[in-house]
Design a protein around this nucleic acid. Sequence first.
DNA 1: TTTAGGG
DNA 2: CCCTAAA
Length: 599
Amino acid sequence: METEFGVEGSHEGKFVEGELSSSPFSSPKQITNPVVYKLVRLEGDGRLVPATDDEVMEVQGLLRDDTGEMHIVPDTSNGILCFSNEGSSTGVPQLERLEGLSRTENTDVDPEKSSVQLEESVPSLAQSLGESLMGHVGSLGECSNPSDKQIGGSSSSIFISGSKPDFSKLQGRICLDNLSIKELHETFRATFGRETTVKDKLWLKRRIAMGLTNSCDVSTTTFVIEDNKLVKNESSDNAGDGYVKDSVIGDIIGDHESLPTGHSSQLEDRQTVAEKKFRDHNSEDGNFISDEHAMEQRANKRVRKPTRRYIEELSELESKVSSTKLITSPKSLGLGQVSPQSHLRSGISASSDGRIVVTRVDSLGGFGIKVPCVYRVRRSRPRKNYATLLKINSGDMDAATSMVKKTLGAQTFVPEVMMARSASEQLQPQFLGEVDREKQLPAVTGSRLGHNAVPTHLDSSIYPDKNVVSVPTLKGGIRRKHHRAWTLSEVVKLVDGVSRYGAGRWSEIKRLAFASYSYRTSVDLKDKWRNLLKASFAQTPDKVTNTRKNAASMPIPAPILLRVRELAEMQVQDPPNHGSSKVLGTTGNSVNERQSGYL
DNA sequence: TTTAGGG
DNA sequence: CCCTAAA
């Protein structure tokens, strides 16, 4: 049985979801006092039961805090976790770790491994539940109403609900109909562990009834609850047939949004899922009045997600900034809003589908926003019309910069779950870059680099991280030039790949020999090979004539070029016989002679 | 999607 | 390196 965790924060009886869930919609607030959580597990049948000691301990372990800013003290006697973050500079607890928590121990150890484990271990049911959970808790997923999702089955979930309910309010038979608003409020608090300011009696009663019965199916008109069951006087609820017990949990956790303009106090009015679900399915009765309506209005107002592109760009910028080399590019300095300081922290966690997601918290526009980021990965080919998107941008503004600026300006960011590929693949180039950089020189013999009239910084392409430049196009558009100088080892790999798989099998070579170089496409390989060919044939005929035109751009050792030429001749003579086999004749011998002779 | 070739 | 036919 798998377990998913959710968190609902309560601070002194009030919601503090802004801090606790790291919602992108919430402005960061300082937590100065310890926050107490109660862990509860959601049973498959919808009951909430206190977490066991082991579960508490487990959650504590999962919430381990790297920064030392949070102190998590378990009270194993009754499923309580106490958080305190004294000294935290951000006020945003590291609850991001809750994303994708499962019983996998090494959530943050080996990304690939745990990815697999998660993939395997999360059953579909728990997964769909987890999606809504993590979507809210982690502020990563869609905030859409998962009303079409179902829960049930056997998956159990652990929640941290910040309730210290006065259960005495809930003893015995409860007749909600007889209660005053105030009493209803108390009962509400006892039931949900939080306060409400909603004054609509019917609303309160329904919500409480739902809470106490763990069911959405409370569309009765009288509310008498006994033994966690609704005593129905009139079962007028065929309306209940329309909806299953939907993902109450997921929404309980975090179906909230504090819009940038929102007042934090309003957050208290946020409905729990059950509430919302209920309302959604009963809106026709028109019993929900202004208060609720207003809330719904707010809830419906959503901000747009940042595009993948945005996230990638941001990540690239950040990787520049945070790289140890600290190449102080004027471009990155021009970023303004995305200053290095805005980077608060980052971490790797698992998304609902078991993939590893790198997240970090950025204070964009003054809000604590967790932005999933992918370090220099491009999952597919570059967007073709990317240039047109940046048309507006001024001449010397870096494409990424302008993108970020525009995005920020429009306040259009909502995180989007990002899947990263194997982390090793992403990181490797950087490490390899370190190794290769020693001999790194522009290796493009026939390169026409200079003719673009892009000033010096283009020539500094020796530094791979600075190679993202935009080049004005003839038509006035902006073309992105992703120049990454070929290193010697890359060239060798390429030559090797060609000799092994044959020229033309670029995808094969890319896949097999260049698996770790995510930034070299098969087309790149082909182009490079073409250049190598040109170079080799230009050079070999007479060795001395080739008094290097420019030493900087001709780093390819002669032996390699020779080998290129041989390979080229080989390919020409015995290409993988397409149709009828041709007379091979003497070619084989000559090849062997050359091979032995030159190498 | 991949290859090949032009720009 | 980009773009685009063509396969």
